[in-house]
Write a protein that binds this DNA or RNA. Sequence first.
DNA 1: AGTTCGATCGCCT
DNA 2: GGCGATCGAACTG
Length: 214
Amino acid sequence: MPFDDLVAGKRPLDASFYDRATAVVARELIGCQLVCGDVAGRIVETEAYLGPEDLASHAAPGPTTRNAAMFGPSGISYVYFIYGMYYCVNAVAYQGSVAGAVLIRGVEPQSGIEQMFGRRPSAQRWQDLASGPGKLTKAFGIGREHNGLCLAKSPLRILEPGNQVPSEVAVSPRVGIRKCADWPLRFFERGNPCVSRSPLNRSARVEEQGVVRR
DNA sequence: AGTTCGATCGCCT
DNA sequence: GGCGATCGAACTG
């Protein structure tokens, strides 16, 4: 769909959206629209990372230069570099704690698909362009320069879902972590092919904890 | 200054 | 299901 038609009438989510419990924000980001430049897609998978009590969170060790954004105001991006070759993008979101962020793990490409294939030539299907946290930053061209930006009014921004509300949101443990491995803080649209599929996701040990119907 | 290891991905078996 | 790629942040001495 053309970019202008896709974003027409959709307003960016403002700080009041992000200034709530991190898991609630993670749940409600499913179906919202991620935009970077003239590339856009629908968020279909997220994970909540909490404050110091969550040992899997980058906030657990306390503030450092890398994770500083997680301790700042809600509604700001937190982008970090991992495994020597990937970026991951978060939306800072918390209330009543001292830190928290939502990792965006899966996006359904909607606009700028040709550009995404140009950035990820190894992708065989459009469904796999952004079906993972490292994949989607590559497809969207998100890097260090996008850390610490206001997600309501930057080239990197998130818009309200409009008429794209998810059919059914499922909950499960988070992927690829060892500490707090049982906490049900991963949210995804059931059945969507753009949800990431790491080996851990497919393992019988990781089973869904429940679903949220609308 | 040296070491460790990670909120991943893609290729191999 | 396992592993190598590849590098910066954080920690140790």
